[in-house]
């Protein structure tokens, strides 16, 4: 299950500038650790679920990927707290609040990655003054990593079709490494070839012909972003001070 993958939806949250979402992720997840007010934590936690609903994300898929945490984390904390604090209702209560904090971290990160495409993420990096060449390198990495996996898998299949068996054993490190040579060599050859072709085509498109580069200027800090930032600040103030 790939819960970390970008899921396209036409929603307010998806359209927001990644910088606002990044700020939300950092501020909200640090906020829950700065307060020990149970109602404040719960309010922030619920707000996070609300953001997820607003983003129209596939609930079933998210639930599938986090259900283990949702069940196991409170349980294990309850056991731990019962030991630490003694057999009291307070222990159960505190354990639940503490689990809530961690679940919020997980949920917020999932919402962030599911609503922010890699390319918008990279553009926002350029906007916060990360050098373009560096962002470009990251783009290439994101683009080619799945391809490398696919290719490696093909090589493994091609060698298995010739009855090759892989050794996975810590006790026989030399044999393990040896058994991977028939995969490593073709994969490297394929990668080098790909890298070479890639470099030729980057040259052919004039990369590095001059210093000034125009990159896609898609991100705008507009009314929606201001609205979202104000709403976030207002909600946090309310949650932390009033509850």
């Amino acid at each position: 299950m790939k819960f970390y993958e970008y899921v396209y939806r036409d929603s307010f949250v998806h359209r927001l500038d990644p910088r606002v979402k990044l700020a939300w992720l950092f501020v909200f997840s640090s906020a829950v650790f700065l307060t020990s007010q149970p109602w404040a934590v719960t309010a922030i936690f619920l707000s996070c679920i609300a953001v997820g609903l607003l983003a129209k994300l596939p609930q079933g898929q998210i639930w599938d990927s986090i259900k283990l945490f949702v069940i196991l984390m409170p349980l294990s904390y309850i056991v731990l707290y019962l030991f630490l604090i003694g057999i009291k209702w307070q222990a159960v209560f505190e354990a639940l609040v503490f689990s809530e904090k961690f679940l919020l971290l997980i949920l917020a990160s999932i919402i962030f990655t599911m609503t922010t495409s890699a390319r918008d993420m990279l553009l926002s990096l350029v906007k916060i003054k990360v050098p373009y060449t560096f962002a470009f390198m990251l783009t290439i990495a994101i683009r080619f990593i799945p391809l490398i996996f696919k290719e490696t898998n093909n090589v493994i299949n091609a060698q298995r079709a010739r009855a090759h068996e892989f050794v996975f054993s810590l006790l026989r490190p030399v044999d393990t490494v040896k058994s991977f040579v028939p995969v490593i060599i073709p994969v490297f050859t394929l990668l080098l070839k790909r890298a070479y072709e890639l470099s030729l085509s980057i040259d052919a498109r004039g990369f590095g012909s001059q210093k000034k580069i125009t990159y896609p200027d898609r991100l705008k800090f507009g009314a929606d972003e201001i609205l979202a930032s104000v709403a976030m600040a207002g909600f946090l103030f309310f949650a932390l001070k009033m509850l």
Partner: peptide, 30 residues
């Protein structure tokens, strides 16, 4: 230039960015 293997000459995350890459390198306005 359009090379033989389309897979290894596309390095952007979407078609639009791919097409914008070339003129961007010449500093053409957005």
């Amino acid at each position: 230039m359009v090379f033989q293997n389309p897979e290894s000459q596309l390095f952007s995350l979407c078609a639009e960015d791919e097409i914008a890459f070339g003129p961007g390198n010449f500093g053409v306005s957005w």
